[in-house]
Computed example of a mutant assay.
Amino acid sequence: MKTRAKICGVTTPEHALAASKAGADAIGLVFYDPSPRSLDIARAAEIACRVPAFVSVVGLFVNPEASWVREVLARVPLDLLQFHGDEEAAFCGQFGRRWIKAVRVRRREDIEAAFRTYHNASGLLVDAYDPNLFGGTGNGFDWALIPEQRPLPVILAGGLTPANVGRAIEQVRPWAVDVSGGVEHEGPLATKGIKDVSRINEFMREVQRVN
Rank of each mutant, 00 (worst) to 15 (best):
F91D: 09
S35P: 15
A168T: 05
L29H: 00
I200V: 09
R150H: 10
F115A: 02
V62F: 02
T137E: 07
V207K: 11
N139K: 15
I146S: 03
S20T: 13
T12C: 15
A66S: 14
P13H: 12
F95D: 07
R75K: 10
F115Q: 11
E202C: 12
L17K: 12
A24W: 13
L152D: 13
G85R: 05
R97Q: 13
V72H: 00
W175E: 05
I111Y: 04
A45N: 03
G158F: 07
F61M: 14
E87V: 07
E112R: 00
L152A: 04
V179D: 00
V177W: 01
A45F: 02
A90V: 04
K192Q: 06
V165G: 05
A176L: 01
A16H: 13
L125A: 03
V57F: 05
R75D: 12
L81A: 04
V183E: 11
G93S: 15
S198T: 12
I100F: 00
R75V: 05
P147H: 00
V177D: 00
R37C: 01
F83C: 00
R209G: 05
R97N: 10
A163H: 08
N164F: 04
R167N: 12
K192D: 10
T191W: 10
P52G: 11
E46G: 03
F61S: 07
A89I: 10
A44P: 03
P153E: 09
D33R: 10
G158R: 01
E170M: 14
V10Q: 14
R4Q: 08
E71R: 09
R167T: 10
S38I: 13
W143C: 03
A121S: 09
F203Q: 15
A121H: 08
E170H: 05
I146P: 02
E148G: 03
G96K: 14
E202Q: 10
A44T: 05
I47R: 02
G96F: 04
R173I: 12
D40T: 15
K21P: 13
G138K: 06
Q171A: 06
K101R: 02
D110I: 02
A176Q: 11
L81K: 04
A53P: 01
K192I: 04
R167Y: 07
G181H: 12
W143Q: 10
G166V: 02
G85W: 04
N132S: 15
A90L: 08
P174C: 00
D25V: 03
E148A: 11
R104F: 06
P151Y: 13
S35R: 04
E14I: 12
K6H: 03
A190W: 11
Y129D: 12
A128T: 15
N201R: 08
L152G: 09
H84N: 09
F54P: 00
R107E: 14
D130L: 14
R97M: 02
R173W: 14
A190T: 08
V76C: 08
N139L: 03
W99I: 02
W175A: 04
E184K: 09
L39N: 08
D130G: 12
I41Q: 01
D142C: 00
Q82W: 01
E65S: 03
G59P: 00
H84F: 11
D79S: 14
R108I: 03
I194H: 10
S38R: 11
E14F: 13
S38N: 15
K192W: 09
G138F: 04
H185R: 07
P151H: 07
T3I: 06
R107N: 02
R173C: 15
A42H: 06
D33A: 15
